[in-house]
Computed example of a mutant assay.
Amino acid sequence: MWIEELSNGKFKYFERYRDPLTEKLKKVSVTLDKKTPRAQKTAQAELADKISKILAKKEGSDITFYDLYNEYYKNWSPTVKASSLRGTTANDKRILNKIGKDVKAKNVNRRIIQNLVNEMMDEGYAYSYYNGFKKRFHSILDFGVRMGYLEVNEAIFVKAPKKIKTFDEVQEKRESYLELNDIKKLLSVLRVTPRVEHIANFVEFMAYTGARYGETAALTVDEIDLETGTVTINGTYDRALKIKTTPKTDFSYRTITIPDNIKKIIQEQLELISLHRSVKGNDFNKENYIFFTVNGAAIDLDTLNVVVRRAAEKAGITKHITSHIFRHSHIALLAEIGIPLSAAMDRVGHTDYKTTLSIYSHVTKSVKIDIVKQLNDLI
């Protein structure tokens, strides 16, 4: 440290430090009224504090969690779809509210995160939700490690505890599909009412192809080849933006064969497009969706679920019905007719075998009865 007297009678204290980025010597200063031993000690402490703050900022160790999140989000958000951004909104908002703006990222430790995860579980949130909350912490802190702000990702030590499921809950998950007879009963009820015929066609397509709601809603005329009996799935419907976007995963891109009943449905839908355009003009359903409403728009998921649940109730089906049950039902049908697991995964665009396997392992009762019959025939 050295001292220079100023023209106004005050004293300027200087100290050098080495910039960790440029490796060049730089200096900081502080001005005091006196040059007494006490003043020199004060200056020394203030200079040391200044240097410490400068170095901490350059090394990133003093970054707040809030600033780290914003930097992470700026880098991450352009790499994902709009639907993924919307899906993280609630978790991200909760994380930022719980941590606060001024908390240093390095102080967000495993105990804090674990307590927040446990808190969500105690509040009755579903496992998938509070596990997603934990994963968001992991992604943010992992970015901090990669950028050199943090030495360790504390979220890797956090577990999302699973509640013990009852027998009924396990059975409900295993049986999250409809038997073929129930599918036929449901379709029969839907087809009684002409104004929901388009919903019936939509449901039948999902049940006999295993396509997701978004994939079915986004299906367009140019992705159909009735001569070869194939459908190419290369997109999904974004409900919020009301547009077709890229599919859920890279594995979702696929071309599948379709049975005769689906060929017939598609042909009917193509004829309906021509009929509507002859009356309403060529701008009707200008996106060329195969399945559409009377206004030419894509079929809304909420409307679909409401109509199907009412029909299921009339058909005497007690299972909880959402559009996704038809995807699971198709997997069950594939198991019933003996399609190999890997072929079923390719058909429905699954990368993780767990979902497909769980349905295969709990295949329909008729198959189990048939297995016993065949074993008895061997005796």
Rank of each mutant, 00 (worst) to 15 (best):
A90L: 13
I371D: 14
M1T: 04
I359H: 05
I51C: 08
L341T: 13
L219C: 04
G100D: 05
V158D: 11
D260F: 08
V363Y: 13
E287F: 04
R94V: 00
R254N: 06
V231N: 05
K354W: 00
D300F: 01
H276C: 15
Y177Q: 11
E197D: 13
K365I: 09
M206P: 02
D62G: 07
K314W: 08
N91H: 14
N91D: 07
D122R: 08
F292N: 06
M1L: 04
T220S: 07
Q267D: 11
E119N: 06
A39W: 00
D19L: 01
T209V: 04
P37L: 01
E169A: 14
K314P: 05
G235C: 07
L25V: 08
L357A: 13
R310Q: 13
T166L: 10
I379T: 14
A217P: 03
E313W: 02
I299C: 02
K373G: 15
E227T: 12
D225Y: 03
K53R: 15
T89L: 12
G316P: 10
D49M: 07
I258P: 04
P194K: 12
I183F: 12
V306H: 13
T257F: 10
T257I: 04
T246D: 12
S61V: 15
V30C: 00
I258Y: 06
Y129D: 00
Y360A: 06
L187D: 06
V158N: 12
K373W: 02
K162V: 13
K244C: 02
E204Y: 03
V307L: 09
E123I: 00
Q269G: 01
E46T: 08
N107L: 12
R111H: 13
K163A: 14
S329Q: 09
I224D: 03
V348D: 00
L272H: 09
F291Q: 08
L32C: 01
H324P: 07
L186R: 11
D238K: 05
K319F: 12
N153W: 09
I359T: 08
V158I: 10
R309Y: 07
R239M: 09
N288I: 00
Y208W: 15
F284P: 09
T236G: 14
D33H: 06
I256Y: 05
L96V: 02
L21T: 10
K162L: 12
V117Q: 01
H328P: 08
E336G: 07
